[in-house]
Computed example of a mutant assay.
Amino acid sequence: MSVLRPAADTTPAGWILAAARTGDAPTVLRYGPPGFDTYLRLPVDGNVVFDMGPGAGVHPMEARLQVLAAHTTTPDIAYVGVWHGHGFANGPDPVAPVVPLPNAWMYLFTGPVTATRYAQQTVWSFPDGTPDAGIAAEPDLVWPDDHSWCLACEVDEEIEFSIGCSAAVAAALEAVLPGRARRVAYGEDAPRERARR
């Protein structure tokens, strides 16, 4: 089983931190850094299982990460930012480099793209190291070492998250999950929360 480990330092997050400090930080946290050819907005699916292939139940986030892993030259070297304030701490705070993103600093971990799916559950594990399977939160920021794409699931998002990528990656995601992605302009306004009754 692939596991995440603390990054050596915050250097790999420098490109995102620079974008947040010199631009609109809330937009960077919501869309990732500017400059990708295409930006997609996709639904936050919670614990919904998606049938992909003959009878195979695959979580939509896992399906997306499988596609993204196939569209990077560094699928075994990815980074994931995990927001410090989720409040899931079952034990002490993780020992990992802290990326001081404005109003949302994050712990930085590294591992294969596919291991980032359960970053929250792994980082906020129980004292004995058992991942907390009761946490449904998605990873906050994920990107491969070659910067070929960036997934951003802003901490207050309830409806959608973003992926910045090439047109080819966007087409591959749309093919795997038809009707579940929409192309948007970078920073396009969209509701964050579901309507309350």
Rank of each mutant, 00 (worst) to 15 (best):
P94G: 03
V49Q: 13
T11E: 14
T72E: 06
C153M: 10
G85T: 02
L68W: 03
Y39F: 15
T27R: 15
V58T: 13
L42S: 03
H147V: 01
D76V: 00
L17I: 07
A152I: 04
G87F: 03
I77P: 06
L141P: 09
D132W: 10
R197K: 06
V113S: 00
A119C: 01
E138L: 08
I159L: 15
P60K: 02
G187L: 11
T38H: 08
R64Q: 05
A19P: 10
D132T: 01
T130N: 03
G23C: 05
G164F: 00
R197T: 12
R5Q: 09
G129E: 02
E174C: 09
A170V: 07
P54H: 13
C150R: 02
G134S: 08
S2R: 07
L108W: 12
P92S: 08
Y79H: 14
A63Q: 00
T116C: 13
S125P: 01
R192N: 09
V49G: 09
L42E: 00
M61L: 15
A175G: 03
T130E: 08
N103S: 13
A119K: 04
C153P: 00
E188C: 12
A195Y: 10
S125C: 14
H59A: 15
A168N: 10
G46I: 05
R5F: 05
V95D: 15
P34Q: 02
M106W: 06
A190K: 07
M1W: 11
A8P: 04
V99M: 06
L42K: 06
A8W: 05
C165I: 00
D146E: 07
S166N: 07
N103R: 15
I159Q: 11
C153K: 10
S162Q: 11
A104M: 10
V82M: 02
P127A: 07
G187A: 03
R64I: 08
A18T: 14
L173W: 00
V184T: 04
D93P: 11
G187M: 13
V28S: 06
S2E: 14
A185G: 14
R21Y: 12
L65S: 00
L40Y: 03
P131H: 08
E160L: 13
R183K: 09
E174K: 11
D146Q: 10
E138T: 08
L4T: 06
T114D: 11
H86M: 12
G129R: 01
G57N: 05
W143A: 07
V169S: 02
L68R: 06
S166C: 04
Q66V: 05
G129H: 01
Y186W: 15
A19Y: 04
W149H: 03
T11F: 09
E160W: 14
P127S: 12
D145A: 15
T11D: 14
G14Q: 09
H59S: 12
L101Y: 12
V49D: 12
V44I: 15
V123G: 00
R5E: 11
A19S: 07
R41I: 07
D37S: 13
S166F: 06
L141R: 00
A13E: 11
W15I: 06
L65G: 00
F50T: 01
A13N: 01
T116V: 08
R196S: 11
V82R: 02
A18N: 11
T38S: 13
G46L: 07
P127K: 03
C150A: 10
A13C: 08
Q121H: 13
V28Y: 05
W105P: 15
